[in-house]
Structure formats: structure tokens, C-alpha cells
Amino acid sequence: MIAAITENLTGIGRRVVSAVWRIGNGTRFLGLILFHSGTSFRRFRLTVKELFFSGVMSLIIILVAGMFVGMVLGLQGYETLKRYGSESALGSLVALSLVRELGPVLAALLFASRAGSAMTAEIGLMKATEQISAMEMMAINPIARVVAPRFWAGVLAVPLLAAMFSVMGVFGGYLVGVVLIGVDEGSFWSQMQSTVDFRYDVLNGVIKSCVFGVAVTAIALFEGYDAPPTAEGVSGATTRTVVESSLAILILDFILTALMIQEG
């Protein structure tokens, strides 16, 4: 009985210790990326190339998802606001929900599953097929040449994608609210304009998506670089990227929102 309890406790302890080690290694890896970031800016075309793969290639899913989220917000918002006779506030509701929360969070979640998982798989496979070792043997630092440009591309891509998500969302809300249901167009836009504050709403949303960009890309790259060089290793790492970055986004979102509200 005591032996079983001890064994369980040891198991939990071992898992906690290994999780702490992983967080430590991940942080150290992020430090290394930052330290070796010079090349990403000196040869900015390397970063731009990655920005194309992670950002531009994610555009379609972001735009379509943004549009539908906005349309749902338009429908649900109208249904609720109608009860209080405040349909004219629909523009504010759609825009505030998107700019403050849904834009940054959903764009980052979609980025994690579309581009983050691809980054992990790519780096993991480069390692498994000895491309990373080959680069090391050519006296080229793979963190500076392969990892850092992808990191900065991700950090730049997420806020831009979040902004486009919000724009498409507002358009979706307009389509449903104004064009389909018939909310007054003038009040839809003017209410939105008067309630959305640039610093408090828009800028805070941008800050959030920058933080999410750092978190998602760092997790994706670390998992890829740390993946065992086997098929199972890479597939496990890809799954972990999506799970860990989704959780990180939601947890960070709560922390940031709490800080921002206090600040406001």
C-alpha cells in the first residue's frame, strides 16, 4: 500500500520535474533564437521568404474563418440586442468582440494549427533527414539560418493575420447585420467608430497578438528542434505544438486581459 503511494508520488514528481526541464530548455532555446537573430534582419529576405510560407499561405483560412465568425457575431448579436431594442449597437458589439478578443485569439489558434504545426514538422523532418547536422558540418549555425527567420516571420505574421481576421469579421457582421437583416447602416458604422478606442481596444489587441505570435512560434520551433528524429517523434511533436500553443494562447489571453483591464 505504502509502496504503491510512494510509486505514484514518484511518478507525479518525475513528470513535474521533466515538465520544468522542458520549460527551461524551451526558454533557453528562445534565448538562443534571440541571440542568433542578427542574420534574420541583416538578410531580411530570409525572413520575408518564411513570412510568405507562414503568413501568406495562412491568409485564406484566416479570411474565411474571420468572415464566418463575424457573420455569426452579427446574427447572435442582433438576436440579443433586439430584446433590449439596441440593434443599432450591433456595429460596436461586432467590432469590440473581434478587435479585443476573437481576432487575436482565433487568428493565433488558426496560425498554430496551420503554420505552427507545419513549422514543427518541417524542422523535425530536417533533423530526421540530417539536414540540420549537414548545416552544422558546413559551419553554418542552423538556429541563425533556419530557426530565427521562421521565428521572426511568425512574430510578424500573427498580428497582421489577426488584423485581417478582424477586418473580415467586421465585414461579415456588416453583411449579416446590415445587408441581410437590415440594421441601419449609418448607426452600425457610427456606433462602431465612437465606441472602439484606438489605444485601449486596437492597440491592446495588437499587443495580445504579438505575444501570441512569440508563444506559438517559439513552441512550434522548439518542438520541431527537440523532436526525436523518427516518424513517431515528429508526429508526436506536431500534435504537442497544436495542444501546447492552443493552451498557451488561452492562458496568456486571460493573463493579458486581466492586466489590460486593470491598466484601463
Partner: peptide
């Protein structure tokens, strides 16, 4: 120093390790 030395070395990996991108 190691990187300077590696510039004078070449290594052919078992399956080539060509950069696939």
C-alpha cells in the same frame, strides 16, 4: 575555431541530406 575547421571539411551523409526546400 571549430567552425573555421569545418569550413575545410566536407561530409557526405548517408542519404545525402540535401535541403529539400
Amino acid at each position: 575555431g571549430l567552425y573555421a575547421m569545418r569550413r575545410k571539411m566536407g561530409m557526405l551523409f548517408q542519404f545525402g541530406a540535401l535541403f529539400t526546400d
